[in-house]
């Protein structure tokens, strides 16, 4: 056996970068599943653009993580040779595409957060993270705009679209709490001015959600029980299947150049 899972030296900064990189890759991968199957050609174009932005963000963050780690890992080893338990993305982004409403609500919840998050991270004391954030913020701002316009149209469209959009919101709501949680390692990075404290963003995130859903005639759920686990590698069953597809070439033909 040439290559099994790689070992990653999981220092707080490496884990921090991997969490953001995994979010971007997994969500980008999910969106890329739409390519060729969207409700209209214009939306095929839009979803692919968003997927490409996210894959680009993931690549920069993996490269940063590998550099911080200082072993011989690189973007592809980090993406293709870690198993489910080593992935650190939010449960939200690994949820299946479902129908168009589910995909857009997932995107809306994430982008509303990511836009604020990257904007705050532009002030990171780490110059590389600040630069990645500056580029990603512009991308996320557009993703949020795109998703918001769709949420409004689905919510205030037909009876069926309203029902589907509301069902997607109710279904995905419990995965949003994880975005605002931090562990001790991340807490230390926040104190050092390297990482962003997501809890400080929750009020504005909720305000964006409220504003858009109000215009869309949709309701945000009242329950505040939240599902967690992605950040420490305890995922839903969906991620394993996603990875078995994503990693199939590297797992079948270990150690080759493509």
């Amino acid at each position: 056996m040439v290559v099994a899972n790689i070992q990653v030296s999981e220092t707080p900064l490496v884990i921090y970068a991997l969490r953001r990189a995994d979010d971007a890759l997994i969500l980008g991968h999910r969106l890329s599943e739409w390519c060729g199957h969207a409700p209209m050609l214009e939306e095929d174009m839009a979803l692919s653009n968003i997927a490409l932005d996210l894959i680009g963000q993931a690549r920069e963050l993996y490269t940063f993580a590998a550099k911080v780690e200082g072993r011989d890992n690189d973007e592809d080893k980090l993406a293709y040779l870690r198993d489910v338990r080593q992935y650190r993305n939010l449960l939200l982004v690994e949820q299946p595409n479902g129908d168009f409403a589910q995909t857009l609500v997932r995107q809306f919840f994430y982008s509303a957060f990511a836009d604020l998050y990257w904007r705050a991270m532009m002030n990171s004391r780490d110059a590389t993270l600040a630069a990645i954030a500056a580029k990603s913020e512009k991308e996320s701002a557009y993703h949020l705009r795109h998703a918001s316009e769709w949420i409004i149209r689905l919510g205030d469209g037909t009876e069926e679209s309203h029902r589907r959009a509301q069902a997607a919101i109710d279904n995905l709501w419990a995965f949003t709490g994880e975005m605002f949680a931090v562990d001790d390692g991340e807490r230390a990075l926040i104190h050092r001015g390297i990482a962003v404290d997501p809890a400080s963003l929750r009020g504005r995130w909720l305000a964006t959600l409220s504003e858009v859903t109000r215009e869309a005639t949709l309701a945000l759920p009242q329950n505040d029980w939240m599902q967690q686990g992605g950040r420490s590698g305890r995922h839903s069953e969906h991620l394993g299947h996603l990875l078995s597809e994503l990693q199939s070439m590297q797992r079948t033909f270990p150690g080759l150049i493509w």
Binding site: M40, L41, E42, M45, A46, N49, Y142, H146, E149, R153
Partner: peptide
């Protein structure tokens, strides 16, 4: 050209199709 249900969607689609 492109197809869109309204002006805002048309503008977004134009960005996604013609300025990649």
């Amino acid at each position: 050209s492109l197809h869109a249900s309204d002006a805002i969607m048309a503008l977004q689609a134009a960005r996604d199709i013609y300025t990649r």
